[in-house]
Design a protein around this nucleic acid. Structure first.
Lengths: 389, 389
DNA sequence: CAACTTTTTTTCGGGCGCCAAAAAAAATAG
DNA sequence: CTATTTTTTTTGGCGCCCGAAAAAAAGTTG
């Protein structure tokens, strides 16, 4: 990228850009590129001299924890992922005693296999399914663990010099959408992910919103029908109990809605199988999807009434069958909410992509890294050592 | 207030405070006070020289529109309300054709009666019951009007040189709470006002949240029971249809829940009368309040699941009977939401005070005024005229 | 009452971030 | 080779803020 374009992008004057980039060059955060840019024919003037982020300046790691599996990825300072792997563990044995060691070992092996200096890893972003407490750095409850209150940030922080951050996985999808298309995904929007459970991410007034305790946006456990269907969380009538994989199976088999979610035979392919059956015309599945669509419509209506987002994004494996839910969802939305409150809404259906969470984690880690580096840069220039008061 | 305290409050150095206050003294925004502060005995050192905001520097007006009534108040630059009046109009005749003139005339008369130069009024803050569109400056729908889409900001803006802002009335309560006790009411909290309808204000991450279209926080019309009780908005099962005055009357009289809300004989004293009957032991009223408490509990539970506020404030005339609703509300909350999501919650019950809205409007107007004055001050110092590009 | 202490306020010089204008650099066009 | 175009750098300056020192205005002490 040329300095003149940086100026346009940041709204700073060329003079300022020169000052800032020359500092960054000195510190090795960016490098000049010798290779000439392909210039348009008939282009006159001094050629642009391109700058690039020096990938080797630092590394960040993303860690995604799902049931039985830890997905690891390492990105350089340019955001390029150059190493990744999946590690398997037994979720039924993972609790606050055993999992921290499992996790730190997995990350340590991963760093060694990547062949980078452990000190070069400055940020580790962790996302987990379930309810997380960002402030405490613990996973309060998750299907990925047998126990509760699993510490994640603490153990990693001790084992590595990096800063560690724990996030809700749907929040990371929200972040990834924002970075992938800032034009479209800015301001105030909500992401609803229908998958193993039902998660939500909120982007409000141009910022990711995480709530007071960092456990925000658990729309899956917002009540849909008082005293309704049994949910995995032990309560009755949660939205999730009408939308998640186990809920769809239960409705397909016309089982009573007090049937224990844990007894339903869900697999990683449940949504895909149900979708195929629906396409084949299976009336039971289609009926279940209609019920799910209705529940989703009520959930969206309540969200609109409380938050008034300009856009709601639907994603997750469970949204594959959206065509079978769409009509019921819109009907429910119209039944549930006065027109004034829904006239400005846009609904996006984004095909599910596992990579979203990883990209969100890395985007967030990079931003945090940038913030610390700005401060570090200031110290260097001022001549203040980091040990000074 | 002494300069040294300003420094402590703003985290600026004494040197900076002197620089800024001397500019403000020059512009007449603040004045020095000659009268000595009562000093503590044994106090040594140079006595503080107190500064005060010069109230005469500017004026702001707050306008609250409710059914049949417009409440006007004028405050000076120090935030002191020195003139107020109520003006009555006929809500059944007020529509987009007639109301703008009614409003501008009322404000014009009010300014004349206050005896201030109309040019000295720099901000007008308007709050209305119902659904408002802050961006357009129109009241989309309100019980205070016969018609829909009533323009408010446009007509006032044309009639006066002031900046005009339209807000949701519950948002102004939220703002007022924040200013009255910033320690307690900061970060992320929600205000639910049960009154003629059910309104909500959200304060998220230290900012008042107004949603994408400025119509946020209409929790009253968030669905409680799909296909449930008839609401004023024309839909069924809204939270309001279980909590508002007409809903309580309907439940007290054991009328079918499809009974038209408009047919219920509500008055300004309905809540007070119901509360008295409950205290006298009227089983029908107590039963209705239990139902309302349950509905409120579900509403609070859904809000917690979506937003995760650290605190929820309950207020409004309808909350007078809270003691009769409390038990049912907590039971509903426990039934509706998994414990992890409600363990960090505090519920405040704040006795209703009509003055909240006025204070919120004035606080908001003052802040806006401060922002414009900072820019104006900069212009003065720089010597740039406001006509310069 | 002069010298010292305490507390608040002001002055002075300087750093940082940003900018406009001018200058320099590096290319093309004729 | 000169003019033109475009990008980058240099220069000087402004605004905001700060730390240190000085000044101001009181009380305390012998």
């Amino acid at each position: 990228m040329a300095r003149i374009d940086l100026g346009r992008a940041t709204q700073l004057s060329p003079a300022t850009i020169t000052a800032i980039t020359s500092d960054m060059l000195e510190e090795g955060l960016i490098v000049g590129i010798d290779a000439d840019e392909p210039r348009a024919p008939l282009a006159r003037g001094r050629p642009r001299s391109l700058l690039a982020i020096d990938g080797s300046a630092a590394n960040v790691i993303s860690v995604r924890i799902s049931v039985n599996r830890i997905d690891l990825a390492m990105a350089d300072f340019a955001g390029q992922i150059f190493h990744s792997r999946k590690v398997y563990y037994d979720a039924t044995l993972a609790d606050r005693g055993t999992f921290p060691a499992t996790l730190t070992d997995a990350v340590r092996d991963f760093v060694a296999a990547a062949g980078v200096d452990p000190e070069s890893v400055l940020e580790i972003g962790v996302a987990s399914q379930g309810i997380v407490d960002t402030n405490k750095g613990e996973v309060v409850w998750s299907p990925a663990f047998a126990g509760r209150d699993i510490p994640v940030v603490g153990p990693l922080q001790e084992a590595f010099s990096a800063r560690v951050t724990l996030s809700n996985d749907t929040n990371m999808i929200t972040e990834a959408l924002h970075w992938s298309d800032p034009e479209r995904y800015s301001g105030t929007f909500a992401v609803i992910m229908v998958d193993y459970g039902v998660g939500m991410g909120l982007f409000l007034d141009d910022h990711l919103f995480v709530g007071a305790s960092g456990a925000a946006a658990e729309i899956g456990h917002a009540n849909h029908i008082p005293g309704g269907a049994r949910c995995r969380c032990g309560r009755s009538g949660c939205l999730e109990a009408y939308l998640a994989d186990y809920a769809l199976l239960r409705m397909t088999q016309a089982l009573p809605d007090v049937t224990d979610p844990a007894s339903m035979p869900v697999t990683a392919n449940t949504f895909e199988e149900l979708h195929e059956r629906a396409e084949a015309g299976d009336a039971q599945v289609i009926g279940a999807l209609l019920q799910a669509g209705t529940a989703l419509g009520y959930g969206v209506a309540r969200l609109l009434a409380v938050i008034d987002p300009a856009r709601i994004v639907l994603t997750g494996a469970g949204i594959r069958a959206y065509p079978f839910m769409e009509q019921a969802m819109h009907t429910a939305l119209e039944d549930a909410l006065v027109e004034d409150l829904r006239r400005s809404l846009t609904i996006d259906v984004v095909p599910w992509n596992e990579d979203f969470i990883r990209r969100g984690l890395i985007a967030q880690a990079m931003r945090r890294l940038d913030e610390t580096l700005v401060i570090a840069t200031r110290r260097v220039r001022t001549g203040r050592s980091s040990l000074a008061p």
